[in-house]
Write a protein that binds this DNA or RNA. Structure first.
Lengths: 110, 110
DNA sequence: CGTGTAAGGAATTCTGACACG
DNA sequence: CGTGTAAGGAATTCTGACACG
């Protein structure tokens, strides 16, 4: 709604080999987590996967959960819940901001 | 001095093909600018180049200068001057901060 | 000086599959 | 279920060199 330019954190520019080094996961594991919908890399014209730093962080979280023996289906559910909580939080902030702006108008001080 | 973790902006994780797409420069051009010391990518064990977003921005600046017919040697000088100015600025900030902290101590309110 | 291109080789990535468990 | 691996092919990257200007 404001910038237009995606931030560095979310730009999908990292290839799978680099992601493997960054996360310590094998290329096979990274592809498998995509199959299970845990990460959604961008695909270039020629079909190669590109990841963002956000994806890398997400993969590290997944790695931690897997180490604890959590199955991919569970991890997926957890992450979806978490995202929902974050959306709510963002929505709440927006509401409060709107409230403040309205209050300003009421007092006749735009 | 504080974090230890490099920020996303400076992490060298982007390969040359992607940089080419991001900047609109040819791979040949990007390699040539390295030869002329205008950009300094990281080299992996196997010798492939990895760039940061900062490098990408720098390359776009280079592209602009080249469009204006500026030679690489000139661009290099300009960029070095600019960096020097930025280091000075950072140094000045640090000095001022130190001054403020000292002032607090003088008043006996640490 | 700055950039394109063909050359030959090494390393990457992709998919679908079999293996183990 | 989650991961390794060999298979075959396509695309990437690297270097040194010749070309043009």
């Amino acid at each position: 709604m404001s910038s237009g330019e995606t931030s560095y954190r979310e730009r999908k520019v990292i290839s799978i080999g680099t992601v493997s080094e960054l996360t310590g996961l094998s290329v096979r594991q990274i592809r498998y987590y995509e199959e299970r919908k845990l990460v959604l890399p961008h695909r270039t014209n020629k079909g190669t996967r590109k990841y963002s730093f956000t994806d890398v962080e997400r993969l590290m979280e997944i790695a931690n959960h897997r180490e604890d023996g959590v199955q991919t289906a569970e991890i997926l559910k957890e992450m979806r819940k978490k995202e929902q909580r974050e959306l709510n939080k963002a929505g709440l902030k927006k509401q409060m901001l709107r409230g403040q702006i309205n209050a300003q108008f009421q007092r006749g001080r735009p």
